[in-house]
Design a protein around this nucleic acid. Structure first.
Length: 267
DNA sequence: ATGGTCGCTTGGCGA
């Protein structure tokens, strides 16, 4: 089972990129973030034609939006409201493929948090921390639920020193501040998750999934960050067969600033 | 230290 997560930054603008990704990676499940489209306008038919008839979508006009596209039936589709905002940042469902045990999959788009890493001065940063706190609390309360779970998404935090181009220079930048990386660690522990990507790619090795648009040539200084994650529960740990960060998309025409990350599970 | 670029919409916000 191949599961891909990708912050696509507008699903309508990048349908052809999605098609190209599918040709090259052929995932069973694709989790998108920043779809930026209301559900009524989601390109359901186009996505069906690409081979994904089962879709769990949660979108709004202009901002945010998440979607799970699947080759296999999705059951128990749900969304959650966090921080009392119905801002389409979390959709989850159970993958119900014949002959495979059900896997619950969570797709998150964590608030980016603005520019100033101080919750007193920056309401967006306060929102980000509150969001992580609420999700962690929820995870603690449902520890006994499905044993096979996957959590993916744009978590907007690069936790390890090797998840950013310069640990030292980014310690005061939103996405890599200690308060955020601690909050993410707390969430990871709260749900008893394993960082599947770092199980395969050694933590010593720099690894990025996002490069800012605000640079002429992203390859030149390689100033990236690992903001996109795949976490799994313990029972799936022994089934990881591959992790792929599909860097190529960042060099495509009209790229998203994030690249897809894929896990292959031998289930 | 600052500004740099996108996408959704057409002025300005969010990333």
């Amino acid at each position: 089972m191949k599961i891909t997560t990708w912050n696509i930054n507008s699903v309508r603008l990048r349908l052809s990129s999605l098609a190209r990704l599918i040709t090259q990676v052929s995932p069973d499940i694709i989790c998108l973030q920043e779809t930026k489209v209301r559900d009524e306008l989601f390109p359901v038919k186009d996505v069906e034609a690409l081979g994904y008839p089962y879709q769990a979508i949660s979108g709004m006009k202009g901002y945010n939006g998440v979607a799970i596209l699947s080759k296999w039936p999705l059951i128990k589709i749900k969304t959650k409201v966090w921080c009392k905002k119905a801002d389409c940042r979390h959709v989850f469902a159970t993958i119900n493929k014949k002959g495979v045990r059900p896997i619950e999959i969570h797709n998150f788009y964590v608030p980016a948090g603005g520019d100033i890493p101080d919750p007193e001065k920056n309401i967006k940063f306060a929102h980000k921390l509150q969001f992580l706190k609420e999700v962690a609390k929820w995870q603690e309360s449902r520890r006994s639920s499905p044993s096979a779970q996957v959590l993916v998404g744009d978590l907007n935090i690069a936790p390890l020193p090797t998840d950013v181009w310069s640990h030292k220079q980014l310690l005061k930048e939103v996405s890599h501040t200690p308060v955020e990386t601690k909050a993410l660690e707390h969430l990871l522990l709260a749900g008893s998750w394993t960082d599947a990507v770092r199980e395969i790619i050694p933590p010593e090795e720099p690894l990025f999934t996002w490069w800012s648009y605000r640079s002429k040539d992203y390859t030149k200084n390689n100033r990236g960050r690992r903001l996109d994650h795949i976490w799994i529960t313990g029972t799936l740990k022994k089934h990881i067969s591959e992790i792929d960060v599909f860097h190529a998309t960042r060099g495509w025409e009209k790229p998203s600033d994030h690249v897809p990350v894929t896990i292959t599970l031998a289930v």
